[in-house]
C-alpha cells in the first residue's frame, strides 16, 4: 500500500510517498512504522502523542477516512490502498 506524506512532513522527508508491504491484519500504526523505516527518518513523534493519538491539527486517513473515528493506530489496514499522514496544520 501507499503511505503519503503532506505539509511540513513532506518537506521534511523530501518524498511524497512510499510503498510498504501490507499483509492482512497489519495495523495503521505498524504500516506507518514501516514507512518510517523506508524513509530512514523518524517522524512518529511529529504526528502522535505518547498515547498514540494525533496532535490537534494532525491526522491520519485510511483511504480518506480519519482513523480517529475508527480504532486509531490499531485500525487494521484491511484492503485499503492509501494511508495519508498529516502533521499539525490548519488555516481557513
Amino acid at each position: 500500500m501507499t503511505v503519503k506524506f503532506f505539509a511540513t512532513l513532506k518537506l521534511k522527508l523530501g518524498v511524497a510517498s512510499v510503498e510498504v508491504d501490507a499483509e492482512p491484519g497489519l495495523s495503521v500504526g505498524q504500516a506507518i512504522k514501516r514507512a518510517e523505516q523506508s524513509t530512514g527518518r523518524s517522524f512518529w513523534s511529529d504526528i502522535f502523542d505518547k498515547q498514540g493519538k494525533t496532535f490537534p491539527g494532525g491526522m491520519v486517513l485510511l483511504d480518506g477516512a480519519n482513523i480517529a473515528h475508527q480504532n486509531g493506530v490499531d485500525t487494521p489496514v484491511g484492503d485499503a490502498e492509501t494511508i495519508s499522514v498529516f502533521p499539525p496544520a490548519g488555516g481557513g
Partner: peptide, 18 residues
C-alpha cells in the same frame, strides 16, 4: 502545532491537500 508550526511554514494553503 497549528499556530506555531503549520501556519508559519505553509500558511493557510496547507489545507489544499488536507
Amino acid at each position: 502545532g497549528i499556530t506555531g508550526e503549520g501556519l508559519p511554514k505553509l500558511g493557510t494553503k496547507v489545507l489544499d491537500n488536507i
